[in-house]
Design a protein around this nucleic acid. Structure first.
Lengths: 215, 215
DNA sequence: CCTACCGATCGGTAGG
DNA sequence: CCTACCGATCGGTAGG
């Protein structure tokens, strides 16, 4: 029995959170209702509720589930694909692919969550979203620092500014792709990323931006 | 009697919509409830409801109110301040100022609305939001085309790409300023805007980017 | 613009 | 994990 090792309760919990994360990208973490989740999973509202004890703790668990999915679908593949400017480009490409593949039906989970909770009062939910986003930004920044340390980006390059600029292109692609249903926004965002990296790249770094080997 | 000319009903309607637009930037257009709005205005729920007839039509009227405010606070001042690359820069600066001044308590109304409705099923509300956003993008694009026609931007400059890139900086500043409560994000976004304009500017255009006259 | 009300759904609880 | 229930609030209506 290969799918054992995990108790039935834990499997149910995982099922709940996968659906919850999907719903949250379309209707928001506040729009996520326990009754609707229960209906969608064919179980009773109180049975589902018993797994979490409060709506807030359901929201926190949903964010944790989304974070795992983000690490698996975006960060891990990009980190495995190289270092320096190659990694920086891979992080951006992995993000585009994650949105294009529809890993979440409503686009990037953290973009949606940031927009929904960014202006709200501090709360555990808001704080966790903020921490996730800061961690992603620092992943971009560290990749930029590394690329600079390896001589692929100019010495006067500001990693924070570069990360901010790249993230602007990623987020815009996410918003416009969904609002306008137009894939041209991915093309524009990819242009923006390459142009921005190119503008700060040294001749050594430029080689990594134009992969010449086949396959 | 100077504040006459407008009936009492129309004044009440305006009061409702101003509060509604403010609330929507924090709690969303769906989070906006008729009961809460009524409480906040000290009137009965059904009295307020009678002005609109449905929640959807309240949402549509709220978007129209926000659009008026956006034109007044961002577009009109920028269009009045010059042409060409000067206008393009003024549009970006007017946006930053609008977010910094807190014209809406939760940041840019249309950024919030786009994030909330971008992934939802088509609806009159979603369509109106999409149209507003497209109109803003085309305002940026037309300013870019104009600047190019006047020789301030290079002939090979793509106005759509430039508008996309500028908007990325504007939106990122809006999100990060609210989520992280850090005004450094405005500084980064302003750098990004100037650098991007500078990269496409002709020598003639460059003069307009560095205003030399005092005051 | 009001009071008074409708059915539906919300998050959450009691008790098993 | 269930049934059965709670008070509060939702969008909306009747009637004035």
């Amino acid at each position: 029995m290969p799918t054992r090792n995990t108790t039935k309760g834990a499997r149910t919990r995982g099922d709940i959170l996968r659906i919850a994360a999907d719903i949250a990208t379309v209707d928001g973490l506040d729009g996520l209702s326990i009754g609707r989740l229960a209906t969608e999973l064919g179980m009773s509202k109180s049975g589902l509720f018993a797994h979490f004890g409060s709506k807030e703790s359901l929201q926190l668990a949903t964010i944790a589930e989304a974070r795992q999915r983000y690490v698996q679908e975006v960060i891990a593949p990009a980190l495995a694909s190289g270092t320096g400017i190659t990694r920086l480009l891979a992080l951006c490409e992995a993000f585009f692919s994650y949105v294009e593949r529809g890993v979440f039906p409503g686009g990037c989970f953290f973009a949606s969550a940031m927009a929904e909770f960014g202006a709200k009062q501090p709360s555990p939910v808001r704080d966790l979203i903020s921490e996730c986003q800061r961690q992603w930004m620092s992943t971009l920044e560290r990749a930029a620092e590394d690329a600079r340390a390896h001589g692929e980006l100019r010495a006067d390059c500001d990693p924070c500014q570069l990360a901010f600029d790249l993230e602007g292109a990623l987020l815009s692609a996410n918003w416009y792709f969904h609002l306008f249903q137009d894939a041209a926004n991915f093309t524009r965002a990819r242009h923006a990323v390459r142009a921005r990296l190119s503008s700060e790249a040294t001749p050594a770094g430029r080689n990594s931006l134009h992969p010449s080997q086949g396959s």
